[in-house]
Simulated scan of single mutants.
Amino acid sequence: MNSTIFSVILLLVLNALELVVGQVQTRPYSCVLPSACRDSGNIIDPRILSPNGGIFPSAGVSSGVGSTGPGTGPPGNFPGSGNPVVSIVTPGQQQTDCPAGYVRCTNVICGTPTVQPSPQDGFATPNAFPWQAFLRNNNNLNFRNGYAGGGVLIDQYHVLTAAHKITNLTSISVSLGVYNTSFVNTQTSQVQQAWIHSNYNQTYLKNDVAILRLATPVNLGGNVLPICLPQAGRSFIGSPSSSCIVSGWGQTSFQTNDAPTQTLKQVHVPIVTNQQCTTSYNNVLGSVNTAAYLDFPNEICAGGQAQQDACTQDGGSPLVCADSGTQYTLAGLVLWGKNCGQAGVYGVYLNVPQYANWIQCVVQCIQNTQNCNSCPAYRFL
């Protein structure tokens, strides 16, 4: 058979298999550590159900395994003497495809790390940003671990990132649970599909957003957890630096090409008004360029403090804000700036609430529950 014809047939077969297998195989539950699941509202599981479907009154509950004395159980449809029969669960009967220690869960806790971020800027605390994703160029894994940029986990199958981080890549994988580049206790999955906003403008980085579909779902809990997504239209403008944090492995300065840094970093930044950001960039870029590049309300600006900023190669990394107590919500994705850490000059971020409906639409499109043409989005990989 002609090799070209064979290649075409193989491609058609692979595409057909993906339509049958790749898109529709969506696990209806997540595998999570029990502490990361809110499926049950009960703190404990009271083991007082009787074999005939009734519930023992408290006075008649069996006092322990093997307790069969008179009066230890209520009358009813019981084998033998009418007392409850105590059975030990047979090993192997509760089968699951989740790894040992993980349970099936349909309501995963989001945005709540097991360790809270440090109030100090600099190196992040281990496990404080369990949603942070490390994007890798599979064609160049031997150079700086293939680092291609940052992203953020939104569920067991999907990672949100900036479109400009992936448009020059042909094969991508995502590592999660990464704290430093030793990649100890991490999970890596190949990217099966990549979807980009149809109105993405590569010149001005407008609608600069993409969703990556992982070929295999990640297990959740500990150092790998999804971030909470915001409600559509929510405003984070005015959020103080004490509430909002950007994290990533980008360069330590504009002149120093040291990304990815060995250890994940963090910095607290305030989210400023659109007018403050416009005024600043008018001074830096001029009014014509500022009008061309800034895209409100689809973008927000944060930072403006000397040496406290995201930097080159942080693109796609998350800006999160504390809602209440220990839970964080995704406010932005790192897009662009002018230099890094200059006083009075702000970093520009994707305004995630403006894309909340788009994110939901694309995820449903990938899972074949939504018409992809309505998103709008196109498949890049």
Rank of each mutant, 00 (worst) to 15 (best):
residue 1 M to E: 13
residue 11 L to G: 12
residue 13 V to Q: 14
residue 14 L to E: 14
residue 14 L to K: 11
residue 18 E to I: 13
residue 18 E to T: 15
residue 24 V to A: 15
residue 28 P to S: 07
residue 33 L to T: 09
residue 34 P to Q: 08
residue 37 C to N: 05
residue 45 D to I: 12
residue 49 L to S: 12
residue 56 F to N: 09
residue 60 G to I: 06
residue 61 V to A: 07
residue 64 G to L: 07
residue 65 V to L: 12
residue 65 V to E: 11
residue 69 G to V: 14
residue 71 G to T: 09
residue 74 P to G: 08
residue 80 G to I: 05
residue 80 G to P: 03
residue 81 S to I: 07
residue 82 G to S: 09
residue 83 N to L: 10
residue 85 V to Q: 13
residue 86 V to I: 14
residue 87 S to G: 11
residue 89 V to D: 12
residue 92 G to W: 14
residue 93 Q to W: 14
residue 93 Q to D: 12
residue 96 T to F: 14
residue 96 T to K: 14
residue 97 D to E: 15
residue 99 P to V: 15
residue 100 A to L: 13
residue 110 C to Q: 15
residue 113 P to Y: 10
residue 114 T to W: 11
residue 116 Q to F: 10
residue 117 P to E: 07
residue 117 P to T: 08
residue 118 S to M: 13
residue 118 S to E: 15
residue 129 F to I: 04
residue 131 W to I: 02
residue 134 F to E: 05
residue 139 N to F: 11
residue 139 N to C: 01
residue 140 N to W: 05
residue 142 N to C: 02
residue 145 N to K: 13
residue 148 A to N: 05
residue 152 V to S: 06
residue 153 L to R: 05
residue 157 Y to I: 04
residue 157 Y to S: 10
residue 158 H to Y: 07
residue 158 H to K: 01
residue 161 T to A: 07
residue 161 T to V: 11
residue 162 A to E: 04
residue 167 T to F: 12
residue 167 T to L: 13
residue 171 S to L: 00
residue 172 I to R: 08
residue 173 S to N: 06
residue 174 V to G: 04
residue 174 V to S: 09
residue 177 G to W: 09
residue 180 N to R: 11
residue 184 V to S: 15
residue 188 T to V: 10
residue 192 Q to W: 00
residue 197 H to A: 01
residue 199 N to Y: 09
residue 200 Y to N: 00
residue 200 Y to H: 00
residue 201 N to K: 02
residue 205 L to W: 12
residue 207 N to R: 03
residue 213 R to G: 00
residue 214 L to Q: 04
residue 219 N to P: 02
residue 221 G to N: 00
residue 221 G to H: 07
residue 223 N to S: 12
residue 227 I to T: 02
residue 237 I to P: 02
residue 238 G to P: 00
residue 241 S to Y: 02
residue 244 C to E: 00
residue 246 V to S: 04
residue 248 G to R: 01
residue 252 T to M: 06
residue 255 Q to Y: 06
residue 259 A to C: 01
residue 260 P to H: 06
residue 265 K to Y: 07
residue 268 H to M: 12
residue 268 H to L: 09
residue 269 V to D: 05
residue 271 I to E: 00
residue 271 I to Q: 06
residue 279 T to C: 13
residue 287 S to V: 14
residue 292 A to W: 06
residue 294 L to R: 01
residue 294 L to P: 00
residue 294 L to W: 07
residue 294 L to V: 03
residue 302 A to V: 03
residue 310 A to P: 14
residue 310 A to D: 08
residue 312 T to P: 11
residue 314 D to A: 08
residue 314 D to L: 03
residue 314 D to K: 07
residue 324 S to E: 06
residue 325 G to D: 01
residue 330 L to G: 04
residue 330 L to C: 06
residue 330 L to D: 02
residue 331 A to Y: 01
residue 331 A to L: 04
residue 333 L to Y: 02
residue 336 W to R: 05
residue 340 C to K: 02
residue 341 G to I: 11
residue 344 G to V: 02
residue 348 V to R: 00
residue 348 V to H: 00
residue 353 P to E: 04
residue 354 Q to H: 08
residue 365 C to T: 12
residue 366 I to G: 03
residue 368 N to Q: 15
residue 369 T to N: 14
residue 374 S to H: 14
residue 377 A to H: 15
